[in-house]
Computed example of a mutant assay.
Amino acid sequence: MVFCGCGRRMFGGERHNRPYYLCWPRDNNRGRPDKYEGHPRTVYLREDAVLDAVCQRTRKNLGGWTVRPAPAGDPGSRPRRH
């Protein structure tokens, strides 16, 4: 799940033929302008930017380890150092 800086879960959408995550608090908080005061009307976050950041963070956390498909007939193989 992807969350906005305001703490709301973002939802998927498409804009200019690209997938985006959006935060649109006004849509379901009518009558509560104080709830997200100062929040932009809509926040767009490109999916490819999210995926790049997740991949970089995962590689960093794995410390150089990568997960490769297990060889045929070896379902218990472990990730190997790259």
Rank of each mutant, 00 (worst) to 15 (best):
R80Q: 13
R15I: 10
T66L: 07
F11C: 05
S77F: 09
G12R: 02
R30M: 14
T42A: 11
P69E: 13
Y36F: 11
H82G: 14
R41K: 12
R41C: 13
P33M: 11
S77K: 12
M1I: 10
D74V: 10
D74W: 05
P40E: 09
T42P: 09
C6I: 03
Y44Q: 13
P75E: 01
R78Q: 10
P71M: 13
S77C: 13
H16M: 11
Y21V: 05
P25E: 00
D34I: 02
R32I: 04
G31A: 13
Q56R: 06
R68H: 11
N17Q: 13
G73R: 08
T66R: 07
H39V: 10
G7L: 07
C23R: 05
D52E: 11
Y20M: 08
G38A: 03
G12N: 06
R30P: 08
E37T: 14
K60L: 15
M1S: 03
W65E: 01
S77M: 05
H82C: 11
A72G: 09
P40D: 08
T58Q: 10
D48I: 11
C23S: 04
N28Y: 06
P75T: 01
D27A: 15
H39E: 13
R57H: 12
G31D: 10
A70C: 12
L45T: 07
C55D: 11
H16I: 15
C23M: 12
C55Q: 07
R41H: 14
R68P: 00
P40A: 15
R81H: 03
V2P: 00
M1Q: 08
N28C: 14
F3M: 07
N28W: 09
P75R: 11
Y21L: 07
R81I: 01
H39Y: 03
A53N: 09
N61S: 04
R26S: 05
R8S: 00
G73E: 04
R59S: 13
W65I: 08
R8M: 02
R30C: 05
W24S: 08
L22H: 08
G64E: 01
A72R: 11
M1R: 12
P79H: 07
G38W: 00
G5V: 03
E47N: 07
C6L: 02
Q56E: 13
A49K: 15
P69R: 04
P25A: 09
D74L: 12
W24V: 09
P25L: 10
D27N: 14
L22A: 09
G38L: 06
T58Y: 09
N29G: 09
L51S: 15
N17P: 03
Q56H: 12
Q56L: 15
C6G: 10
A72F: 02
P79M: 08
N17V: 08
Y20R: 03
F3W: 03
V43Y: 00
P25M: 14
L51M: 07
R78D: 15
R57S: 01
G13H: 00
R32K: 15
Y44G: 14
H39Q: 14
R80V: 14
P25C: 08
R32L: 14
R26L: 06
V43E: 00
R46K: 09
